[in-house]
Design a protein around this nucleic acid. Structure first.
Length: 539
RNA sequence: GCGGGUGUAGCUCAGUGGUAGAGCGCUACCUUGCCAAGGUAGAUGUCGAGGGUUCAAGUCCCUUCACCCGCUCCA
């Protein structure tokens, strides 16, 4: 633990860039705290303090501005059309049946205490003696794994002092789920040496369940959304009907999502409640490749623009076998990854995934909602183009109505905020704080500190006037207490890029000093130039 | 979920059965003349929580919660 000592307890203690040190600074300065701390905390939930809230808001606002209000020019040279929605966290339970979440992620799982393997209970089979005495061993195997099955048969044969193939008159295969609990001590798990290592089946539901209405029964069961995407898909028709967008266009949403992670770990990186920033971008199927590449690169560039410009950021294309169920047939999936200080195995962790989801979701909702082809997009431009080209009526009808394909750039706001924190954390033994937070000025929680050098001789009044003027546009802080060095040091740990100091010369010359966080350099500028200075630096 | 470790003031830690401490930070006042300066005064502890052993528990035992590390999981 000595090596991972966190933030400085004294001004001169050396600081190294470790996750412990970053977490300690986050706590100490009010970026991030554990939720419900006074009750001992709750695993996988985190609160943002004053500085963290500003930081996260800056990231989300930048995303909203750069994606929804002012998106980049598309690969076709056209202005990208993008609109926002803000959907509920609780949706109709059928949404999650259609999306595949209910089927795929609420399974009974069985753990092996010996091998630490985990199995889906309904995939686990057991080979056993039909007429056993109540003491014979049983051997479990994976139903979809031939090697596992053969091994179980061989081991049973050995235990029963017979040979394979086992006589079907004497031996049979049963479902693990059909074996009574009091017989588990006789079951040998796959790869295990001793019997009795399997736990009883437990429900692993990755979605949070809640109940809507005062009566809690199966009919009132609902889920907290595990992704914001489905709110977009469910409103896709409404957006088309009300906002005059045309394919290609995007719908963006920021919002909370919930997942019962098996093991929340690594500070806020894997939380059970977290915030997403998602785009579903609807396109003609044949343009999938170019739009996929466009968004992948645009999103990568965006993360660089908010301060993750170094080699800690990388773009990684998924291998085929890594692809999600909805993306198997698509143009690809890639992760934008950041090298967090805590992830040891590969070094990089996902910030955003860009996936070609094909038309999977819209088709699923078309089917489950019963709307069918009514959820298809009617492409009038394409229809006119086909008519002009002299296509047959049948072809025009068939081709101009379709389910758009979707490119989904899905980013984590909390992971992004954490990456900003990690990237900004800069140890510096030459400054009193031992560390400063080198946020890009656009992201910095506090844009400027305004200080009277000494708390007298009219300096506080001038500083206060400047403070009141600047706070109209930016989050700035005025502080007159204690020595100027302490105030600069505090601003270093908050990551404030600029400090304006009113000193003895100010009344005569109407100038203040600007102290630059990264270089520690100072310059004098006119008191009436401060607003313009910040405007230029912050964009 | 499994195994190991940790938990005392805001932070870093001392305290091995007998009155809860230090440094830093924080607050007020004084001082100040550009990088956590100095003086004076002050506030702050469910010793992670619950239970047990004991005349007496921060300290020993049990349970639990949280965090860290390694597995596992991660549509």
């Amino acid at each position: 633990m000595a090596e991972s000592q966190s933030a400085p307890s004294s001004p001169n203690a050396p600081v190294t860039k470790t996750m412990d040190a970053i977490v300690a600074l986050c706590r100490r300065r009010g970026f991030i705290w554990q939720s419900s701390e006074i009750y001992g905390g709750i695993n996988g939930f985190w609160d943002y303090g004053p500085l963290g809230t500003e930081l996260k808001k800056n990231l989300k606002d930048a995303w909203w501005h750069d994606i929804v209000r002012c998106p980049p020019v598309g690969p076709d040279g056209q202005t990208v059309e993008m609109v926002g929605v803000d959907c509920t966290i609780i949706m109709h339970p059928k949404v999650w049946v259609a999306s595949g979440h209910v089927g795929g992620f609420s399974d009974l799982k069985v753990d092996c205490r010996e091998t630490q393997g985990r199995y889906r209970a309904d995939h686990l089979l057991v080979v056993t003696n039909r007429t056993d005495s109540g003491t014979n061993l049983m051997f479990a195997f994976m139903g979809d794994d031939k090697a596992s099955e053969e091994q179980a048969h061989k081991r049973l044969a050995k235990a029963e002092k017979t040979t394979v193939p086992l006589s079907t008159a004497q031996y049979h295969v049963v479902r693990f789920l059909d074996i009574p609990l009091n017989e588990y001590h006789r079951v040998v798990a796959p790869e295990a040496q001793k019997p009795g290592s399997l736990t009883e089946p437990r429900m692993f539901n990755l979605m949070n369940i809640t109940y809507v209405g005062a009566v809690q029964d199966d009919d009132s069961k609902a889920y907290l959304r595990p992704e914001t995407a489905q709110g977009i898909f469910c409103n896709y028709r409404n957006v088309l009907d009300t906002s005059r967008v045309k394919v290609p266009f995007g719908i963006a949403q920021q919002g909370k999502a919930f997942r019962n992670e098996v093991t929340p770990r690594n500070f806020t990186y894997r939380s059970r409640e977290f915030e997403q920033m998602e785009i579903e971008f609807f396109i003609r199927p044949e343009t999938a490749k170019e739009w996929y590449q466009f968004w992948r690169d645009a999103r990568f560039n965006w993360w660089q623009s908010v301060g993750l410009a170094g080699e800690n950021l990388q773009l990684r294309e998924h291998d085929k076998e890594e692809l999600a169920h909805y993306a198997k047939e698509g143009a690809g999936t890639s992760d934008i990854e950041y090298r967090f200080p805590f992830i040891k195995d590969r070094g990089f962790g996902e910030l955003e995934g860009v996936a070609h989801r094909t038309d999977f979701d819209l088709r699923q909702h078309a089917q489950h909602s019963g709307l069918g082809d009514k959820l298809k997009y009617f492409d009038q431009e394409l229809q006119q183009k086909l008519q002009a080209a002299g296509a047959s009526k049948e072809d025009i009808a068939a081709q101009s109505r379709y389910f758009p394909h979707v490119i989904e750039p899905s980013a984590g706001a909390d992971r992004g905020t954490l990456a900003l924190l990690c990237e900004a954390f800069t140890p510096d033994p030459n400054r009193p704080s031992g560390v400063y937070m080198k946020f890009a000025p656009r992201m910095a929680p506090i844009k400027a500190g305004i200080f009277p050098l000494v708390n007298k001789d009219g300096m506080p009044e001038i500083a206060d006037k400047l403070y009141r003027e600047l706070r109209q546009k930016w989050n700035v802080e005025c502080d007159a207490k204690q020595s100027i060095g302490k105030r600069y040091a505090r601003m270093d740990e908050a990551g404030t890029p600029y400090c304006f100091t009113v000193d003895g010369e100010t009344p005569a010359t109407q100038t203040v000093t600007v102290r630059h966080r990264d270089s520690l350099q100072q310059e004098r500028i006119g008191l009436d130039q401060v607003g313009a200075f910040l405007q230029e630096k912050l964009g």
